[in-house]
Simulated scan of single mutants.
Amino acid sequence: MPWLLISLLATVAATLAVGWIVDQALQRTAARHPSAPVWPLLRRCRIPLQLTVASALLLANKPLQRILRTAGDDGAHHLLLLLLIASLGWLTVRVVAAALEALLSRYETRVDDPARIQRVHTQISMLRRVVSALIVVVTVAVMLLTFSAMRTVGASLLASAGLIGIVAGIAAQSTLGNFFAGLQIAFSDTVRIGDTVVVDGQQGTVEEITLTYLVVRLWDYRRLVVPVSYFVNKPFENWTRRDPGLLAAVLLHLDHTTPVDELRTTLRARLDRHPLWDGAEWALQVTDTTPSTIVVRATMTARTPDDAAQLRFDIREQLIAHLRDEHPHTLPRLRTTDS
Rank of each mutant, 00 (worst) to 15 (best):
A13F: 11
A30R: 03
P40T: 08
I47K: 08
P48H: 05
L49D: 06
L51C: 07
A56G: 08
A56L: 15
L57R: 09
L59C: 00
N61S: 10
L64W: 09
Q65A: 13
R66H: 13
L68M: 10
L68H: 10
A71L: 15
G72T: 14
D74L: 11
G75A: 14
A76T: 14
H77L: 05
H78P: 01
L81N: 10
L88C: 09
L88Q: 07
V93T: 11
A97V: 03
A99K: 03
L100I: 12
L103V: 03
E108H: 05
D113Q: 04
I117T: 12
Q118F: 01
S125P: 00
V130N: 02
V131H: 07
I135M: 08
V136E: 09
A141Y: 06
M143H: 06
S148I: 14
A149P: 06
V153N: 03
S156Q: 12
L157A: 08
S160E: 13
G162H: 08
V167F: 03
A181E: 04
G182T: 00
F187H: 07
S188I: 00
D189C: 01
V199K: 04
Q202Y: 09
I209V: 10
Y221I: 02
R223M: 02
V228E: 11
V232M: 02
R241E: 09
L246A: 15
L247V: 15
L247Q: 11
V250Q: 06
L252A: 05
T266P: 00
L267A: 14
R273E: 15
R273G: 14
A280K: 11
D288V: 07
M300A: 14
P305L: 06
Q318V: 04
L319W: 00
I320M: 05
I320Y: 01
H322F: 15
L323T: 04
L331I: 07
P332L: 06
T337Q: 05
